[in-house]
Structures are given as structure tokens and as C-alpha cells.
Design a protein around this nucleic acid. Structure first.
Lengths: 343, 343
DNA sequence: AACGCTTATGGTTCCGGTACCATTTTTGTT
DNA sequence: AACAAAAATGGTACCGGAACCATAAGCGTT
């Protein structure tokens, strides 16, 4: 074929620092420096090198740099993005990464211990400079893999309880749920239900439920197990949970959902039935997603700044990589009970 | 420190195929083969090698393989995840990637030409086996970079119009918007407004608007520019657009939103004002997100299978990488007008 | 003019898996 | 038994930056 070549430069030579160096008439090392330590190269030489690079359309091979230990890649494991508000976090991580010249390797999913191990093994194969783990069930094997690798680890998770692998960024899910339950009680609700997505293996949810229980206990309200329901993380799940709980307990007056998505679904179901919110039943969510404030009626919810959480996780990792030994092990972000009209 | 070593294996030797080979008493090459071409190694040798690998906690360095051209990484560029339904697509891409042993490098953002070029350059530095681009403004520089790299490219985008770089997976945004507008007209609506997020530089939105225009023209309804509004992609944006359009045009009877998020925000605003939907005004969305079906009233919308779109994009890339020359250049996914009660 | 010190540049080797080719062992055929 | 063909394994070089050390040039000081 005729090789739609652009200009005369195009002998089909392998394009690398060596080739650029040859064209400019310097050593490969000088080209390398012009890219990663510009101040070590004289302005004139640098200009000529950059010009040649531009001209040749040369893109430095980051795999090669990485092999020399200068990797600028971060491996991340996150829960499914759909409906969970995780998208905000990923955006935060992504933004922070790219502002610092790092690339983000992403694995997402709901994992069994075995799948989790595979996912982490895959990521570690790329020898990332650091890892950020979010949906992490903590198999022993995975812990060992991470320990063997030299990569610092930030977990985005519950900040209480379980011993962290390395660093943790997150909130106290216990506190948030405790606070919301107390808040509902303070507003006069006495029979408060709790709805979440499947709790098994998810310590964030476990902590929230425990916070809910603790508040009830403190309030002198007995914990009835059948005031709790688990449903899939969909609006329909929320609607179904509402139906289940209200038909089980005629006198239930408030429901605390572990996710805004569920709460919003429940509010829609109330509209369908012509139930006033919070007249017939009060509804509270978790996450303060964009729609929460705009919902009719506006949703009372727990506000967590997920975007910031993502950014912080990356920043913490980079701080550690930057040699700052004084990086805190645990960073706790605040939360806020946003009292709107749904409860 | 005391080096909490586990077992005797742990002389602090660099861990690589060479080290494993030494321990097993074979050549490095044989270890490599045991991992990537198991059938080329006798079952007994293989077993001993795998055992040693397991025992040592060895994770093969994928950077090194990649440098020999066996890269299993895909670079992706997607629009912001928040509120846009893109999350489904990313999930689809991620799932398909991991099922095939590929890793996914993710960049997300709303790009200027310059930022886009930087993002693509960053990704190409990793020498990905392929690229999937979604928010792509098509600077000349970026095109050149991609052409220079040997990576096949799949664009997830409008399938009409602009010349594709390589392969395209997507829908005809024109068709979808045309169909929805016609659908609204068929239901008797005569004054149909159009609301989208900022259109500039987004050819998917441009195509939708053009489809809307085409339908109006065919219906003999004049296009009034002030029947169109652009707002940010938030529920609040949708609410504001509703207010703007209805106060501008007392007789407007339907609004077609370019995103479910906007439409849902508008429906909430209607509730707030006590307006019946579709009695006072009909509302249609785009995307069929989870909540659409559960909304009160259920949202009429354009259903696009974004998850599948993500999967297809990856599959198409892998098919090409698998040497299948007969991979189609353009894959068009279907869509569906979901007629519910909001319009 | 001679010395020390900074700055600019070059040469070589390595990171770790694997392509390529060479060599040995096993199996099958007449 | 003799030889072809297949299967299993080994040795070496390479991908492309960059660390490390060596060398050369520039410049101020006594």
C-alpha cells in the first residue's frame, strides 16, 4: 500500500528517545531529561528536542518509565457505579489523579472473595504506585497480596472497627445512621423502619444498621427485626420496601433508607397511593444526591461529600508517595443531616 | 524493624520469572510459558511452577509483557459520570474488559480540545491495545496522535455524520429525537419544547436537536428558537427549564428533555406547582434510567441500552485485536420509545 | 594561570517478561 | 532398528526509558 505518509521524516523507524536523540544529535539520556527534568537541560537543547518530539508525534512510553519505578498509575477498585452515588467518588478520584499527572486503572464490581482477589491481582500486575479500594471484602489472600506489593493503600470505607490495611478515608457510617435516627426521633417519629440494600459482606451498611440500632436502644425503642428490609439498589426496591413495611406495621411512621435511590422510589410509591409525605409516613434517605433537594417533597437525607472523598483518597495516596511520612492514617470526612420536608 | 516474615522462602530477592525459575529448577522461559501458554508445558512441570508461584506470592509484571506487545489494557475517555447515565456504560465496558482479562484505564471529563489532546496523549503513553472514546471533540492533534498509534479505536457516539476515526458503536441520536418528537405529536401535542444540556461541542446533542427540528418541520410546525433552552445537567436545571418555557409560552403543551435527569426535575417542579402531568403539561425524557419507570407519573422516555453499548464497544475492539478483519466499522444499537404516562 | 565548583551532556546497564531460535527428549511409523 | 516428526525445554537478546557514573564545558575566585 501507498503509506499515506505526511512528510519526509517518516522512515518507519521505531519511535523512541533513541530515535529522537539521533535526529536532534544528542544522547538519548538528554531527551529523557528534557521530558522529565527540563531544568537539567539547557534551554536551547530543550527547545530543539521538544520541537523534534512535536514534529515526530512522539509519545513517551510510560510502561518503560514504570519499569524503572517511576510509575504514575493508581489502581482502584470500586462498587458498581449504577445508582449508588459512587459515580461522584470516581469523578473525584479521576479529577485529582489527572491534575497530578497520574492515570487511573479502574475495576468495578460486587465481589466475592475470590473475584476480589483476582481483581487485585490484575491491578497489582501493573505495578501501580498506589491502590484505592472501596468495595473490599478483605479476603486474607487479598491482604497478603497487597502487603507483598510495595504500593500504599487507601481504603475508602467505614473508619471504625476493622483494622485498616494502611490508610483509610471515609466517614463513620455508624455515626451518620445514629444521627439520622436520633433526628427522626427528635421530630416525633416513634416507629422507625430501616431499609437497606443487601448488608452481607458490606461493612458500611452493617455500621449504618448498627447505628440505627444503637439509637433505638438509647431511645428505649425495642429493635424489631421485622422493621428492617433488604432490597436491591433500585427505585423499585425502595417502593417495594415501603409496601412491605407499611403492610407489616400499620403504625409505622417513618422509614430510614440507606440510599437516596431507595428513598426516592419510596416517595414515588407514596404519590401513587396518594399518601402524604411526611403526613402518612416520613421518609429519609442517605447520600444527598442531586435529585434529593429537588424532589417533591424535598428529601431529608444524610449528606456525604462523595466527590471530595474521592479527591481526598487520591491526595492522601500522593502525599505518601511524595515521601511525606507524616500522612495521617485515618481521614474522617464530616457529614450533615439535611433536614428537608420529607421527614 | 523485625521483618514480620512468614516462611523461609523470604530471602529478599527480587521476585520475577527468573527467581521462580531458579527455585523450581527450570528456565525463566518455561515459567513464562506456564503462565501464558500452559499447554506448551508438561503438566508436571506446570504444577511445580504454579505451586512455586503461589507459594512466593508472585504476581507477573504486566508492564514487562506489554513492552513486548502483549498489552492487555484498554484506554477509555468518557464524559462526566454524574447524572448522565454514563455510569451504565462504564459498567458495561468494565465488565466486558474484565471478563476478557483486560484492564481499563479511565479518563473522564468534559474537555476542551487542548485538554482532550493531553488526556489522549496520557493514555497512549501506556501503549494500550485499544482505545474507546466517548466524549470526543475531535481536535486535529488528537486525531493525528491516534492515527500514529497502532491502537484500534472505537468511538461511542452518534453513528451518523462526521467521519469516524476507526470504528463506531452507538445510536442515531437524530432518529431517537425525531421518533420521540413524532410520538409526542401523534399523541396530540402541538406545542413541543426542547430542553438539553449545553449543546456546543456535543454532537450527540446536536443530532438530537436536529432530529427534533426535522420532526417539527415535517409536521408543519414552525421552529421557534425560544422553544428551546439549555441548562446544566441537574434536576434543578430541568425544573428551571420548565419554568422558563412555560412562562415564555402559555400554550406549550409538551417538553422533550434530552436527559431523564432533567425530565425528572421538571416533573418535581410540576408537583410543587400542583400541575398535572401530562394534564397541564406533558413531559418526556431520554435514557430510561432506573427511576424513570418508578417515577410518579411514570416517565415517557427514549430507552437506550447504555450498558450494552459499553459492552459492545469493548467486544468490537477485542474482535479487531483478535485478528478478525471482518469487524464492522459501525455498530448501531436500537432504541425504543417507552410510552408511559407522563406524556 | 590554576584551581574548585557548578552545569550540561554522554555511555552503559538494568527493569522483567517473552519472541525467536537452538537443542534435547519423546513418540510414532515403516 | 532407523529415522521423521512432534513435544518440551533452554539461552539470548530485546522492548524503551532512566539511574548511575563519567566526562566535558563554563565561570568565578585568589
Amino acid at each position: 500500500m501507498t503509506d499515506g505518509a505526511e512528510d519526509d521524516t517518516g522512515g518507519r523507524k521505531r519511535l523512541g528517545v533513541r530515535e529522537i536523540a539521533k535526529r536532534v544529535g544528542v544522547a538519548p539520556m538528554t531527551v529523557s531529561r528534557a521530558l522529565s527534568n527540563p531544568e537539567m537541560v539547557s534551554p536551547e537543547t530543550r527547545a530543539r528536542i521538544l520541537e523534534a518530539i512535536e514534529q515526530a508525534g512522539f509519545v513517551p512510553n510510560r510502561l518503560a518509565s514504570s519499569m524503572k519505578g517511576n510509575g504514575r498509575m493508581i489502581g482502584t477498585v470500586v462498587p458498581p457505579l449504577i445508582n449508588s452515588g459512587i459515580a461522584d467518588q470516581v469523578q473525584g478520584m479521576s479529577d485529582e489523579c489527572h491534575e497530578s499527572g497520574y492515570s487511573m486503572l479502574l475495576v468495578q464490581g460486587e465481589f466475592t472473595q475470590e473475584a476480589e482477589e483476582r481483581a487485585i491481582r490484575n491491578l497489582l500486575g501493573w505495578r501501580p504506585a498506589g491502590m484505592i479500594l472501596q468495595s473490599f471484602v478483605q479476603s486474607e489472600a487479598a491482604r497478603a497480596l497487597l502487603a507483598n506489593s510495595s504500593a500504599p493503600v487507601v481504603e475508602i470505607s467505614e473508619i471504625k472497627g476493622r483494622k485498616p490495611i494502611d490508610m483509610v478515608v471515609g466517614i463513620s457510617n455508624f455515626e451518620t445512621a445514629y444521627a439520622m435516627t436520633m433526628h427522626l426521633a427528635a421530630k416525633g417519629y416513634k416507629r422507625i423502619g430501616f431499609v437497606s440494600t443487601p448488608i452481607h459482606g458490606n461493612d458500611r451498611l452493617q455500621q449504618r444498621r448498627t447505628g440505627y440500632h444503637a439509637a433505638l436502644t438509647e431511645l428505649g425503642i425495642p429493635n424489631h427485626d421485622n422493621m428492617e428490609v433488604e432490597v436491591p439498589i433500585t427505585a423499585q426496591g425502595g417502593a417495594e420496601a415501603l409496601v412491605t413495611l407499611t403492610s407489616r406495621h400499620k403504625d409505622i411512621d417513618a422509614i430510614f433508607f440507606s440510599s437516596d435511590t431507595l428513598a426516592i422510589g419510596a416517595v414515588q410509591e407514596c404519590h401513587r397511593r396518594g399518601w402524604a409525605v411526611p403526613g402518612r409516613i416520613a421518609i429519609a434517605g442517605y447520600g444527598d444526591m442531586d435529585l434529593a433537594a429537588q424532589l417533591f417533597p424535598p428529601l431529608t437525607t444524610v449528606k456525604v461529600n462523595r466527590y471530595e472523598m474521592g479527591r481526598r483518597a487520591v491526595r492522601q495516596l500522593l502525599a505518601r508517595l511524595g515521601g511525606n511520612a507524616k500522612v495521617p492514617t485515618i481521614t474522617s470526612l464530616g457529614f450533615e443531616i439535611v433536614d428537608r420536608e420529607s421527614a
